[in-house]
């Protein structure tokens, strides 16, 4: 029994350390250069009297042992830093308000208003959706902009490497006709995934989920489609142009509708957007259209990341 446990532990340990049997395609970190062998030639008899100065000796010693010592120092330094940070933060945590207590400073009048009046002020059943898309919508607009910024930056850095010969990356996915199993699964799975993504997006104000989670689910359907039928077939309905147009348009609708709401709110004008009845699909004012916009942006962007990383083009 004990031996079995030991062998299991050994296997796990080897796996963690990366010593176990490896698949062929596995990626290894570049090997550190081996310690320099003693390349110094033996001194001939005449030069024996030449005393190496201290500096020369030090340089020789450094050449031979420097890398090793440097790596040891490096690890020691990292462990030390880690310990210092952790101990400092642990000392801080020990003084923080207790976990899960209802009289903590964070549970104040702000939270009470969100919970008690959020449903008629925003019209959303999911308090978190009302919070991020109505009370604190500016943050969420910033968040979508972060995603947009990352999307255009990645497009700039990795884009167009399929067409130009300058870069070495080859296409990873070679379209194969004989992958019937994957295609069979994809035919069944893609509609289900799409439907589930849509449900999560559309019910964002009623239940857990919302635009971001739903968009991520939608993007997996696109990724599966690309894997089963090749990137070319996805490119028929979703290419770089459509990617840019759809994300920009969705973000634009988001910005304009939320801008209208900010403007009317700050100037105390009457907003024409109805709140609806809490609990219905068509309720919660702007939250439903905003969730759909966010879902579109996220689905497009995440699929775009996938395509850019694997092919260098959308």
């Amino acid at each position: 029994m004990n031996d079995e446990l030991k062998s299991i532990w050994l296997k796990f340990f080897n796996w963690v350390m990366g010593n176990g049997p490896r698949p062929e395609n596995e990626v290894l970190p570049p090997e550190p250069p081996p310690d320099l062998p003693f390349t110094q030639k033996p001194h001939d008899k005449f030069s024996r009297f030449h005393e190496a100065t201290l500096k020369e000796r030090y340089n020789q010693w450094l050449e031979i042992h420097g890398l090793h010592i440097f790596s040891i120092l490096y690890s020691a330094l990292s462990i030390l830093t880690c310990l210092v940070i952790v101990v400092l933060l642990l000392a801080t945590v020990a003084e923080l308000p207790p976990f899960g207590h209802e009289r903590n400073p964070a549970n104040n009048e702000v939270i009470r208003r969100y919970v008690e009046h959020g449903w008629h002020e925003t019209g959303a059943q999911n308090i978190v959706a009302g919070l991020i898309l109505d009370y604190r919508a500016f943050d969420t607009f910033g968040e979508s902009s972060v995603l947009f910024t990352a999307a255009v930056s990645v497009l700039m850095i990795l884009g167009n490497s399929r067409s130009s010969k300058k870069y070495k990356f080859k296409q990873l996915h070679v379209y194969r006709n004989d992958d019937t199993i994957l295609r069979g699964v994809a035919v069944m799975a893609i509609p289900v995934i799409l439907m589930m993504g849509c449900v999560v997006v559309i019910n964002g104000h009623l239940s857990a989920g919302g635009g971001f989670a739903g968009g991520a689910i939608l993007s997996t359907a696109l990724i599966l489609c690309a894997n089963a039928y090749g990137f070319e077939s996805v490119r028929r309905f979703f290419n770089e142009r459509i990617f840019i147009v759809s994300s920009s348009t969705a973000l634009m609708i988001y910005a304009l509708s939320k801008g209208y709401s900010f403007f009317t709110g700050a100037n105390q004008l009457h907003s024409i957007i109805p709140k609806g009845v809490v609990g219905n699909i068509l309720s919660a004012g702007l939250i439903l259209p905003l969730n759909i916009c966010v879902g579109l942006i996220v689905a497009g962007t995440l699929y775009g990341f996938y395509a850019l990383f694997s092919e260098g083009d959308i």
Partner: peptide
Amino acid sequence: GVTSVLFFLALRKVGQLEH
């Protein structure tokens, strides 16, 4: 899901170049 897939893709790309 997505973050890990991105990591895998990056590794694959690096590995491909290595091969």
